[in-house]
């Protein structure tokens, strides 16, 4: 039949045999946006932004510090998590995350310099248990905020997280209150806090310090929201329309101030810090 000529042939979808590799340790990396195979060294030089399609690939905390700060002295490097609740397999997961990332926990905090301006900074790492926030992350952020107050320095936090860490139960939930209460004091001291939301930022992190910046910036394409796709499916049996929870979606709905490309991030942060010096 003639009609058969126009019928789409049926193909069987074959899933790739090797697990998807997105850890940035190999020589070559596949862009999650366009599928292009990229030479890792070149990609890193380009701040992990795909040269072909502009997708902002995820960065480790160290890569971001390298890309954003001219100088960095780490705070509280020795803080590490304990399995307070005796939650099944938690130690195991922590050990694996530590081995895979070379980090003690899912955030690096410290004091740094951007274009000659001093600041207190915290950078989360999604490769460490999806940046989930437990007591250590809460404590490190709180201490960073308290140091910013003591030193009268601006604070910049780069968020990326799946939310509060289930393995620490309600103790993890309470880190939302703790970090927010510390930020209340920073705010009362008249100090600047810039929150940079990177892919992905969800749950208890969105619902606490990450949303509390005097200025809230997102990276292009970053997914940002309260309920992550998995939670929505599990609890509400819902899927959001395409484009929901992107940086653009959040900008259009008035939830963030701006979307800034990674290549411009450093100069934008410096400009904002300069704009917050002085006044009459």
């Amino acid at each position: 039949m003639l009609k058969d000529l126009f019928r789409k042939p049926k193909y069987v979808t074959v899933s790739p045999t090797a697990p998807k590799k997105d850890m940035p340790d190999g020589l070559w990396v596949k862009c999650s946006g366009c599928g292009e195979i990229l030479y890792n060294k070149e990609l890193t030089k380009n701040l992990k932004v795909c040269q072909k399609c502009g997708t902002h690939l995820r960065m480790t905390a160290r890569e971001r510090i390298e890309a954003t700060l001219d100088d960095f002295v780490e705070y509280d490097a020795d803080l590490s998590s304990v399995n307070t609740l005796n939650f099944p397999d938690y130690e195991d997961k922590l050990a694996k995350a530590q081995a895979a990332t070379g980090l003690q926990e899912g955030i690096l905090t410290g004091e740094g310099i951007i274009n000659g301006l001093s600041l207190v900074v915290g950078v989360m790492d999604s490769y460490f248990m999806m940046g989930s926030m437990g007591a250590v992350i809460g404590e490190k952020i709180t201490r960073a905020v308290e140091r910013a107050i003591a030193k009268k320095l601006p604070l910049i936090l780069f968020a990326t997280s799946g939310g509060a860490r289930m393995q620490e139960g309600t103790l993890a939930l309470m880190q939302m209150a703790k970090t927010s209460a510390a930020l209340a004091r920073l705010s009362a001291a008249g100090l600047l806090y810039i929150s940079v939301l990177t892919d992905p930022t969800f749950g208890g992190v969105t619902a606490s310090f990450a949303s509390l910046g005097d200025i809230v910036i997102a990276e292009p394409g970053a997914l940002i929201g309260f309920a992550g796709p998995r939670v929505l499916q599990q609890t509400m049996h819902q899927e959001l329309p395409p484009g929901a929870q992107t940086a653009k979606f959040n900008l259009e709905h008035g939830i963030i101030d701006m979307v800034v490309e990674r290549g411009q991030m450093k100069s934008m942060l410096a400009k904002l810090m300069r704009l917050h010096q002085g006044g009459c």
């Binding site: 939302m176 209460a181 930020l183 969105t206 606490s208 929201g225 309260f226």
Partner: peptide, 12 residues
């Protein structure tokens, strides 16, 4: 409508 922000604002 910014669920994350609404919750965060109450906390702070």
């Amino acid at each position: 409508r910014g669920q994350g922000e609404a919750i965060a604002r109450n906390l702070i």
